[in-house]
């Protein structure tokens, strides 16, 4: 049963990725649509990371007790200043570990 579930799940994830790059699909993208889609990367990726920072167990957490928020603030600054992916990750992870495990405010 689990095996069947996994195989069907694989079909679904593949279909969602592949469907719109299939050439026979009768979809034409106009210039306006292409322009709109050019905003998809910042839009989707942001909609993935922001809730991780602010929402825990279904609750909004905007406080200094939220290690995610503190570390993310430093990471955003690091990313804006350095534009370096490694430095941003390093700053984020170090501030996260410090604020989560050492600094219980």
């Amino acid at each position: 049963m689990t095996l069947l579930t996994i195989i069907l799940m694989a079909l679904i994830t593949f279909t969602t990725r592949y469907l719109f790059i299939h050439p026979r699909l009768p979809v034409r993208l106009g210039a306006k649509m292409a322009k709109l889609l050019s905003f998809s990367a910042p839009a989707v990726l942001t909609a993935i990371w922001v809730p991780i920072i602010f929402v825990q167990q279904g609750q909004l957490n905007v406080s200094l007790n939220n290690p995610y928020l503190i570390a993310a603030s430093f990471a955003v600054l690091a990313a804006a200043k350095s534009k370096s992916i490694y430095l941003t990750m390093l700053v984020g992870l170090i501030t996260f570990i410090i604020s989560r495990y050492f600094f219980v405010l």
């Binding site: 990726l45 290690p67 993310a72 955003v76 990313a79 941003t88």
Partner: peptide
Amino acid sequence: FAIAVTFIALVIP
């Protein structure tokens, strides 16, 4: 958080 910080690093710049 590892996922979040990766996407921060990708999106902000």
